[in-house]
Design a protein around this nucleic acid. Structure first.
Lengths: 143, 143
DNA sequence: ATTACTGCAAAGGATTTGCATGTGA
DNA sequence: TCACATGCAAATCCTTTGCAGTAAT
């Protein structure tokens, strides 16, 4: 299920909600960022196209899109980042020394996920995780 | 290395910092909670014994203790939780439906950790993770 | 005697909320 | 039409900061 803007619109309507220009603009702004996008980036992009849009609307819309699972969010040092859902799921390695971010494919979590389900009955929602640590460069210079 | 209050005090002194009654009270308050403890719980416990202690001090002290790795923190739905470090490292499974929290031993992450190091050169700091999902009961009632 | 630490109060920043207005279905 | 969405402004919540006074070593 790859979610482009049209599919998202369909999904929204299907579930009984309304497709508004604001919502589409916000979806577009998230799509524009190839990777995860911060609140401020989204806000700026939307402002560029439609200077009227309010921050509160953006907060509400992002929550809304996350609840519909059209967008996924992760926390990177205290700030939320957003991404269109449905692309190949992946995660991030965040260096807490230099801030570099590396992508981590989802398959690393396949085993953990099924193990948790089998052994603990826990249906983990590991859809967009950010792990912190030291990137190769910083790990090197640290010793 | 099991960190009780005395060892913590020794560690603090050893590294050139000062052992103050506030710090000890805060360490005690964290120890009192068998599991992870929220900011507010710690604050209340400390207040009960020493009504003078300031929130700013608590914030600063918690940061301080985390930096010394005497305490570890994790984020559970947007709020930090704290725990004495050095006990057997473990993680948490948090049900986002009912809020139930289950412990998850660290060994589940051994492989992931060494894999990240080998394949990506990334030295992941997975010391106290909180994974969200659905606990057995909620997963059941959901369908 | 130093200088780290604390308390206080104020500032800061992010997110939420209430309510009137607007608009998609 | 009418419930859902939005804009606006104020409120709220969490956390940080500056500074003056206190206390651990």
């Amino acid at each position: 299920m790859s979610h482009d803007r049209l599919e998202c619109a369909a999904q929204i309507r299907e579930r009984g909600f309304r497709v508004t220009p604001q919502r589409m603009l916000i979806l577009d702004a998230i799509c524009e960022g190839k990777e995860h996008t911060t609140f401020d980036e989204i806000y700026d992009r939307v402002q560029a196209k439609a200077p009227g849009i309010n921050q509160a609307t953006l907060y509400r819309t992002l929550d809304f899109l996350c609840e519909l699972h059209l967008v996924v969010s992760a926390e990177i040092d205290g700030r939320a980042v957003y991404e269109i859902a449905g692309e190949t799921p992946h995660h991030h390695l965040v260096c807490h020394a230099c801030g570099a971010i590396q992508e981590l494919p989802d398959f690393h979590f396949h085993e953990l996920r099924s193990h948790l389900l089998r052994e603990h009955g826990f249906k983990a929602d590991i859809s967009h995780l950010a792990l912190t640590g030291l990137c190769p460069q910083c790990a090197e210079s640290e010793r």
